[in-house]
Nucleic acid binder design. Structure first.
Lengths: 357, 357
DNA sequence: CTGAAAGCGCTTACAG
DNA sequence: CTGAAAGCGCTTACAG
């Protein structure tokens, strides 16, 4: 027995040299045996001896040395703006982690705060560590500009797009159709309003807060397409000029109701607006879903906060993360963005229109 | 001009050897100059020449090689169960990132799913990469057992405790006092109920879901202490036997009200239960805060979902992350857990008791 | 002040 | 089948 048996959690690390010595073979032989390479035919008996020695010594190869030699680090970086923001979008991280774990790949998490200088510094740092690829993510589905340092490496965009770069985004257009169809199937038709359109004169440029032009445009597009296919159309849209939050949703719907309009259903650009709609309806003495049906987008934790629960078309964050990581590992080549379906999460906020019951 | 100028984002990497050659010095001299070491007195003119060469070539040192040589990687790993769970607790990641960025340290994010085998594999993998330390985090404040592989390294516990290991946790006891004081100051006294106590016979062992024995015990303790100091006491507690979610909160408070009790205020073990309380109160025709005051714990995004907004004692996740990272970088030695204050987030759910207005 | 050399722990042609 | 050697890109005693 050699004196150096640090064991797991011990102080000094065992090296390949020590394993080879203990097994009575050369370092090359030990390396081949441990990596299961067959091109240098090592007798099974020898290989077994090496494996035993490694096991007895508690050997675990130094990844830093391996990386220096091979140039492959077995790591990937998730570069994003969104961890700095809040929300349940971190499910993307969870999804990516699921895929990567199966491939024994580790994840660096990095947060640029949307600051290009911070971003450049971090990207350089990561490249200096031989990361095998980048997942470039955005909190909101939008068009991004790829920083030069992220080019010339494996790169997959997560929840954002840029021409000629592989990307994974939610299928917002289908989501719009899903929302409209859910209402059509319940019997709604001519009094469906949309809450959360762009304010008049808004250019649609990728501004930096709650705005998510890509999502909104496509959702509305899908809604209108589905209604048109049924020979119907939106009764109207109510713009929201700043954040899509609860209070703005309440105010917008309150205005709508005060104007004398009596919608049969509200499609809200996100869940927070829909929750706000609940409040405005309650204040007006209207019940969800008996008097007015409501549907939101996102599938956020907020849907559980109201009674009845909010029906919502969910952002498939976890799946986005999983698919993007898989594409990265498999070396996806650029093409049209990969779109992930947005599932309908059933609550109790949709019923037949009041006048049809 | 040498032909190899890949520039940022280029293909081949520039090495120190090339910088030294261009500057007309040895690799050692180049290394010293670039690292600003003064012990090997290099003329300022020479150093400037080296820096210029590095700049012109777009040199950036290979961190993998540096790590192999020095044994320090400039990375830290956040090992947790909670990314696999949901919620806004990922603010801990954000906080850690803030501290680490200032020290130019990168973060590995890892998710064990609470599976000891997965955990062991990941810890070994991280050690093989020469990580400088571990942040061991839990979704819920609780006592944890430190896996052997995480010992003998720099280690700070985040939102969990274990004897003899430095730890950062929320100050739950003070939070309880804060909640009780907010009600006392509004004039409540003898009809304050607590929603979300342990079910009868519950041992308090660290079970694995929404349970957070440490938090609950300490919060209740603080509440009772504050009431006692004012010569008052809780009117009663309502146990919740499974998850602290909206529906269970609603059901619990509905039961309480049906039993004929008329509380003046409810302290709910978390925000979701408090939201459920809102629903039960509304169903009983009671208004918040005019008829009943409500206060929750966590300061989660749910507080914005109700009208009036829920007043809550917030979990200081971001600060927890920041402080834990700082302790890790500064090499904190073990002692009593470091407790971070939980701030009161004012909503509109507390008012003077109905009988005193 | 400067340069040649060792060494961090691996992998992998290459010669026996 | 096996071993000696080179090399990944750095840092750092050590001898001039």
């Amino acid at each position: 027995m050699v004196s150096s048996d640090p064991g797991p959690g011990g102080t000094r690390r065992v090296t390949l040299t020590e394993v080879a010595r203990r097994a009575g073979v050369s370092r090359s032989a030990a390396s081949f045996a441990l990596n299961g390479r067959t091109d240098l035919r090592i007798s099974e008996e020898t290989a077994a001896r090496v494996r035993l020695a490694a096991e007895e010594l508690g050997y675990s190869p130094n990844t830093t040395a391996k990386t220096l030699r091979t140039g492959k680090s077995g790591t990937v970086a998730l570069v994003s703006d969104f961890i700095g923001t809040t929300s349940f979008a971190n499910a993307m991280v969870r999804g990516a982690l699921q895929t990567l774990r199966a491939e024994n790949t580790l994840l660096y998490t990095v947060d640029t705060q949307g600051d290009p200088e911070v971003e450049a510094t971090l990207l350089q740092n990561l490249r200096d560590r031989d990361v095998d690829g980048f997942l470039y993510a955005s909190m909101f589905t939008r068009e991004v500009e790829i920083p030069p340092l992220a080019r010339n490496t494996s790169l997959v965009l997560l929840n954002c797009v840029s021409s000629d770069v592989p990307a994974v985004i939610p299928d917002e257009r289908s989501a719009g159709q899903t929302a409209a169809s859910a209402l059509l199937e319940a019997g709604h038709r001519d009094d469906i309003w949309f809450i959360g359109s762009f304010p008049p004169g808004f250019t649609g440029a990728a501004a930096w807060n709650e705005w998510s032009p890509l999502a909104l445009t496509e959702r509305l597009d899908g809604i209108e397409a589905a209604l048109r296919a049924a020979g119907a159309a939106l009764a109207g849209t109510v713009p929201i000029d700043t954040d899509w939050d609860v209070e703005n949703g309440r105010a917008a719907v309150a205005r709508l109701l005060t104007s004398g309009t009596r919608p049969s259903a509200l499609i809200c650009a996100n869940d927070a607006l829909a929750i706000g709609a609940y409040h405005a309806l309650a204040e007006a003495g209207l019940k969800v879903p008996d008097d007015v049906s409501v549907i939101g987008f996102d599938g956020s934790p907020l849907i559980h906060a109201v009674l009845p629960r909010l029906t919502s078309v969910a952002l498939p964050y976890e799946e986005l993360g999983r698919v993007a990581a898989r594409m990265l590992l498999e070396g996806a080549s650029s093409s049209a963005p990969h779109r992930i379906p947005m599932p309908l999460v059933h609550g109790g906020s949709i019923a037949a229109p009041a006048d049809r019951r």
